[in-house]
Write a protein that binds this DNA or RNA. Structure first.
Lengths: 414, 414
DNA sequence: GAGCTTTGTTTATAAATTAAACAAAGCTCT
DNA sequence: AGAGCTTTGTTTAATTTATAAACAAAGCTC
């Protein structure tokens, strides 16, 4: 039984020599990544090293080109600190957030700061080569706009909407994208970006990582990030680290059973959470309400929309105070909350962040989720539990993807 | 947000100076604890140190009295290795497994080898002082029989049947033992065992730890230990470590909802797994079957038993082929399996170990659990999943309790 | 019993780390 | 303005730590 962390080398090729570092250097880089621009004295405090050792190590890292001095900070009552930063000029990182129908790409410097951003509507249900060719073209375009040569791209982090065998870096039995099964995405990018270290993970895991690195998840040891959209999934952080499980498929809560008598899900089982509470179920229920006359407003919206209702429309109806729409959203929230209640008992997180397409909905969903969780979880597990929408915007996926590859790039060599 | 590991010092008093050690020494001890008796060369390989460094460090540890040489091993084609072991004479550890109605105590040497063992039937629903006085008397009796002075007891690991705030070392809202709420067990033992380091944890967590240290859980990164008895609980191992959650209450799966229309549980909710599938539910269903005539065998057993049926009786009836008894056991298994299916999707363990009072039942329960899990979990999560009864006997609790305190005793100082 | 292997220690050397002194820069308060 | 203090950072010399290589002990194999 091998932990994913130990096999990531199988997923990506040997990393560029410029970035290969030992444990000591990695500690400095880690401190810098977390804190941004810091002084030598800060590093002394963060690492516990002596001033002499810090001074020496920093000199080496600056000589190597990994760090640069970026000027002086404000005086704390004495000599002004000389601030250090990871050398942006080292190269760039790419974050890819592959959705069912959308593609988000960001180009960032090695410090993780996004400098180019693209979004596109692409359907993932095509051959992976075709899809990835488009990705590659976009990346090259963004790199070119940034004045970055393909060789300067040091890492590509990728989130995909399906179960990932993280150790091998391939999708396994992905319902949304069957053609991608066992396709090695890293190998595709290798020729075009010879210096890049490629890491593939589940899309929700990278969102959890984004929340942890750049959102409200910072410093929280145990939390769950729940994505509600076309599907429902979750990313788990245990002890400050992504928990991927023994086969990399942890967090797949969309197919937990809510109602054995419920409708048949695309996974083959009956009454899965995803089939009953996610976007498509909301649309269906709303269209039913429109047709059977229980909501004139929804009927009207449906006519305007050309015969379909999207979850956003139901949300709009909610805002108008439409009772049927409210009931639909509340029912979804209650089902999601019921499942989360069980997971809260089991996992005892201190926070649950909710994101995905449904996030910009009003509070009806959140309130329903909270109520269901509080009703059905043990008091000990909920007294210190916060359930909130993620406050990160649409960049959460690419941010997490960049953080993912960043983490592995700046890891000490085995 | 503080992780339990970081606050354990609050739970126990400063450890005896003899055992205080730095990281380097802890590494040797850890290797020794895992491997038993090993040579200096083995330590060289396990730690990656040079022969000279190992030789030097071992000499220091032997001089300190932490290690002893215990003779020579078999030759591997050259000079025979001189085997080292943790010095048993350093002192003793106590493992306490407190059940609802039973108490198990073991006295072990610091290497973890049990040398005295007691079990008693004691009801936990009394004032903690009274209960713990009996425990203390038993420990003193065992110590005396072993020739161990109270001062030589270096650690006491305790498992209790209720939610534990692990950081503080107290029970929080324990349903079975309300009088124990916020009672600090460590403080009770301090006067009698002044050298002892006391660690309290949930009973299922210590069973999981026992399975990991001395059972089939060795070397497995992600597993769940499920205890089925009067209640149903679980211990979670993520990344090789017990996952206690943000408030120490993780693993409490007994109150996950199985059927919203189900009976009212003692927790106040309806249709909890525990209320529907654990020992008492099995007994009740069996007594109903005895009364309503659907099982003449159960009726007969109930008469012999003086009007009650225990889960063991239902099991006996199963072995006789009684259909009603089989149905009851299978129904329990299916409900447990349904809940586990969700947790498998969420957590993706590679193994589930099932223990507790129901363990010595036949395979009907296990088969029903497996079938339900396989039916309702995603294929990716179950292809490599093993679900089995724990093969550890009734010592699993005390073994885990000893392992728990052992782990904290031989930890490097902060 | 010669020659090899494995285990473990010693020693001389090299590397890493530190404390302390020093230097640079800036603040504060008179 | 400038004396005295603070903070930041470097240099130095001393100390600690770790290593490679030689050595020693013990035992196997043929």
């Amino acid at each position: 039984m091998v932990h994913p962390d130990q096999v990531v080398a199988q997923q990506a090729r040997p990393r560029p020599t410029l970035l290969s570092m030992n444990g000591v250097e990695a500690k400095v880089i880690e401190a810098l990544r977390k804190q941004g621009e810091i002084s030598r004295t800060d590093i002394t405090n963060l690492t516990g090293w002596s001033k002499a050792k810090t001074s020496q190590k920093i000199r080496e890292l600056v000589n190597k080109g990994l760090l640069v001095e970026v000027g002086e900070g404000a005086s704390q009552g004495g000599r002004r600190p000389r601030l250090l930063r990871i050398n942006d000029r080292l190269g760039y990182l790419v974050g890819l957030d592959i959705g069912a129908t959308s593609l988000d790409i960001a180009l960032a410097d090695v410090g993780g700061k996004i400098c180019q951003r693209r979004s596109a509507l692409v359907d993932v249900r095509q051959a992976p080569e075709e899809y990835l060719k488009d990705c590659r073209a976009l990346i090259l375009e963004m790199a070119s706009a940034q004045g970055c040569l393909p060789d300067q791209i040091l890492g590509i982090g990728i989130g995909v909407p399906g179960p990932v065998d993280f150790g091998r870096g391939v999708l396994v039995a992905p319902p949304l994208m069957p053609d991608w099964e066992n396709y090695h995405i890293g190998d595709f990018f290798q020729p075009a970006f010879p210096s890049a270290f490629v890491v593939v993970d589940n899309d929700v895991n990278i969102m959890a990582l984004g929340e942890q690195r750049a959102g409200d998840g910072a410093g929280i040891d145990h939390f769950i990030f729940v994505k509600i959209g076309t599907g429902i999934g979750s990313g788990i952080v245990s002890n400050g680290k992504i928990h991927r499980g023994s086969y990399g498929s942890a967090g797949d809560i969309g197919h937990i059973c809510v109602d054995k008598q419920g409708p048949i899900c695309r996974c083959g089982n009956t009454g899965c959470l995803e089939a009953m509470a996610a976007g498509p179920a909301i649309s269906e229920k709303a269209m039913l309400a429109a047709k059977n006359g229980s909501s004139p407003l929804l009927r009207q919206m449906m006519e305007v929309n050309g015969g379909v209702l999207r979850p956003e429309d139901v949300n709009a109806a909610c805002r108008e105070g439409d009772q049927a729409a409210l009931d639909i959203i509340r029912a979804s929230g209650e089902m999601i909350g019921d499942v989360l209640a069980g997971l809260v008992n089991f996992f005892n997180p201190s926070h649950i962040f909710i994101g995905g397409g449904i996030t910009n909905f009003g509070n009806h969903l959140l309130v329903a989720i909270r109520r269901a969780v509080l009703r059905r979880s043990l008091p000990l597990a909920t007294t210190h539990l916060a359930i909130n929408f993620s406050r990160m915007g649409p960049d959460i996926g690419v941010t997490g993807a960049i953080a993912l590859v960043n983490e592995y790039l700046f890891q000490p060599e085995a």
